[in-house]
């Protein structure tokens, strides 16, 4: 790599990083400031973090909201990975005319805005509540079920499988592995980066999801983190210092998860299986 190229790469990446990270840093700085300073856009760290934190912990139950959000996001991510990768694998490896039609049909489900599905979905869970209260309104299951399978993820797994070296699957079959064995022993380990990307994206969208949990969860003790933050802003004179503190606490898990998972995006990982 030439010197020029190197300088060019670094300056572009540094610039992109600075622009990207600025609001994030400001958010952290703001969590140490008084409400008035936050609204004025103060850029320097202050000394109010502990006070903001105490106020936050006194007024709302952040811990249980974090636990609720974690439960929902972890279950959603694990189950979603399984269902979507099985389907993505199935659609691509066992390709057939009728499956392609089904696949395109499933893609349709991505195209409607969620707002349009909310009322029918709510009615559906309302009637489920009468018989099976375990998955009815105001349960975590009701939050998870409608969002755990997305055509989006199936589509992603299928497109990634297109670039997958299929010969190695054949090798596995010849070695006498069952079809599920091929999937779990060969496909899953080889597709590690795809799983990492999919898990990050799924966790993040589940962690931040707002509209559906808002309508389906009723009891305050089941509240998730985004709902809690929304409530903090419900006042005519919201305390932005406290809100920013809550946001920092809410954002860190997702950011941390990304930092841990991104190690899987190392060039040449595929080399090991070639």
């Amino acid at each position: 790599m030439s010197k020029f190229k190197q300088i060019f790469s670094y300056s572009v990446l540094i610039l992109a990083s600075v622009i990207s990270i600025f609001p994030f840093l400001w958010m952290i700085v703001s969590s140490t400031n008084k409400s008035v300073d936050v609204t004025k856009g103060r850029l320097l760290p202050g000394s109010h973090f502990m006070q903001n934190l105490t106020n936050l912990l006194d007024t709302v139950d952040v811990v249980s909201a974090l636990i609720n959000s974690a439960k929902i996001s972890i279950i959603t991510t694990v189950v979603a990975m399984l269902i979507a990768s099985l389907a993505g694998y199935g659609f691509e490896i066992f390709k057939s005319k009728s499956k392609d039609i089904l696949f395109n049909f499933l893609l349709l489900s991505m195209m409607i805005p969620f707002a349009a599905l909310m009322v029918p979905l709510f009615r559906m869970f309302g009637s489920i509540s009468q018989t099976v209260s375990m998955i009815g309104i105001d349960t975590l299951a009701a939050v998870i079920l409608p969002t755990v399978t997305t055509a989006f993820l199936i589509f992603f797994f299928r497109q990634s499988t297109k670039m997958f070296p299929k010969e190695i699957l054949e090798a596995g079959r010849i070695d006498g592995l069952t079809e599920l064995g091929v999937f779990f022993r060969i496909y899953v380990p080889t597709m590690k980066t795809t799983y990492a990307a999919a898990a990050i994206i799924t966790f993040m969208s589940s962690w931040n999801s707002y509209l559906w949990p808002l309508v389906v969860l009723q009891s305050p003790e089941k509240q998730t983190i985004p709902l809690l933050i929304s409530n903090l802003g419900s006042s005519y004179s919201p305390d932005f210092g406290v809100i920013m503190t809550a946001i920092v606490i809410a954002t860190l898990p997702a950011a941390l998860l990304f930092f841990i998972m991104q190690k899987h995006f190392v060039a040449g990982m595929m080399g090991s299986v070639k």
Binding site: M118, G126, D138
Partner: peptide, 24 residues
């Protein structure tokens, strides 16, 4: 007493009432 932002209350009420589900 349950605290929700006003926009949230409006959404929750509209969704519940229009789906005819009084639960919650």
């Amino acid at each position: 007493i349950v605290e929700n932002a006003q926009a949230d209350i409006v959404q929750k009420l509209n969704t519940s009432l229009s789906s005819g589900t009084t639960k919650g």
